[in-house]
Design a protein around this nucleic acid. Structure first.
Ligand code: MN
Ligand code: MN
Ligand code: MN
Ligand code: MN
Lengths: 222, 222
DNA sequence: AATTATTTTTAGACAAGTCTAAAAATTTAT
DNA sequence: ATAAATTTTTAGACTTGTCTAAAAATAATT
């Protein structure tokens, strides 16, 4: 049961996992193909293989979901990805928009001692540089009670805790606008025409489009 | 010229490099196969591919050597391997006999920023945990003036600076015998019958077989 | 120099992962 | 309920890296 998977297989499991958590239902071949930038026919082939290994549940034409085994592996790969991202930012001087590509490679390195040693070295971080929670060695992680900023109403106050889009372009935009994780914000005004928002961030007034506000996760102050 | 190579291709280059430095002449198909635990026919195929990419010089039946390009890549992979080994030992609590397998994976991660960042984080170490020199970012590294301990004569003094065999079994033997890199030693007596040696290490008398002494690198005191 | 042994290469096959083009199933629209 | 559009699967092919078995070249013996 603890055979080694190829990097490709791990990437499929991760993709299926992350598509499942947003929709909460069996994932379609097309969606997986899109996410992995491959063709649906390739996905069908791979999914059969993963089903043979008891990593996914697969019924022809009905989509794919992870088995307990598959989920465990997916979460473990995500754990490694996020730990490496923390390491790169904290210790090697990477910006938060530079880490993803490298973490995509590092997440496939197989060594329990490495992963757990890294975790300890980093003093068991709970979130990665993008605000995503890091699973612990048993695969458990915090389920955050978050909403997108665009859902807030006028006057409401909250704290920025994550990004939905973690593309380099978006992260650089945030850097430029001096919008950082952890910042306390207040919605001063919400324009009903285009849903743009005027925010107060660290005493500064900042206007952002819905494109932006719908990609920022916030935690509402209680 | 800066296309990405597969892990397999990188491993072939590294193997050819290390076989070349010991013999200093074109490397045979059989030797490469043995080193990589593969078949000579597979080596022939791969060597042709590497020759097409101008990474090796290859003449049928005459063996293989690295081109300047090939050597540059091989040295860069070795650089990464050894830097990671230092990281694992210094920061993640690995023993020197545990690092190799993991470094074999990490050495293939492709990111200049990662490699050079790691180098800086480690404060530009010059040797890895086994005493092997670490190439700098330009591929230059110290050429050590070393000999094997077994070549020393009675009364001669020297310092242990490296291991020829870096198998886990040998390294564990050394740990057990409390023989460490950096230790100053003196040859007290050399048994001509079996070439075993009686050494003085840190004031302790230790007897070692030729098997051991021929796998320890020393630097003679001047 | 001729024979034998060893090394190296070729030929053909296979597994993993991918692709295109075509067929089958499902969903949406009429 | 049929037809049309979309999604998904299959069939066949290609690439990378590997293997076995056989042929060719080289090296070692006699
Ligand atoms: Mn990432
Ligand atoms: Mn992240
Ligand atoms: Mn090593
Ligand atoms: Mn080493």
């Amino acid at each position: 049961m603890k055979f080694d998977l190829s990097q490709t297989e791990e990437n499929y499991l991760k993709a299926i996992y992350s598509l499942f958590v947003v929709s909460n239902k069996a994932v379609s071949t097309n969606k997986i193909a899109e996410k992995l930038e491959t063709k649906p026919s390739s996905v069908t082939d791979m999914v059969k293989k993963l089903a043979d290994k008891d990593l996914v549940n697969y019924i022809k034409y009905q989509g794919v979901s992870l088995t307990a085994n598959g989920k465990e592996i997916a979460v473990h790969v995500i754990r490694k990805h996020r730990l490496w991202e923390v390491f790169l930012v904290r210790h090697l001087g990477f910006q938060w928009d530079e880490v993803h590509e490298v973490a995509e490679q590092l997440e496939h390195v197989k060594s329990r001692k490495l992963t757990d040693g890294l975790d300890a070295f980093l003093e068991f971080p709970r979130y990665d540089p993008h605000g995503d929670p890091i699973p612990d060695k048993d695969g458990n992680f915090i389920k955050r009670n978050i909403t997108v900023l665009s859902a807030l109403k006028e006057k409401e106050e909250s704290k920025i805790v994550g990004v939905k889009d973690s593309s380099s372009a978006f992260l650089k935009y945030l850097d430029n606008a001096d919008i950082k994780l952890g910042a306390e914000i207040q919605v001063l005004y919400k324009e009903s025409f285009d849903n743009s928002m005027l925010l107060l961030i660290n005493g500064q007034k900042v206007s952002i489009s819905q494109q932006i506000s719908s990609n920022l996760y916030v935690k509402q102050n209680d």
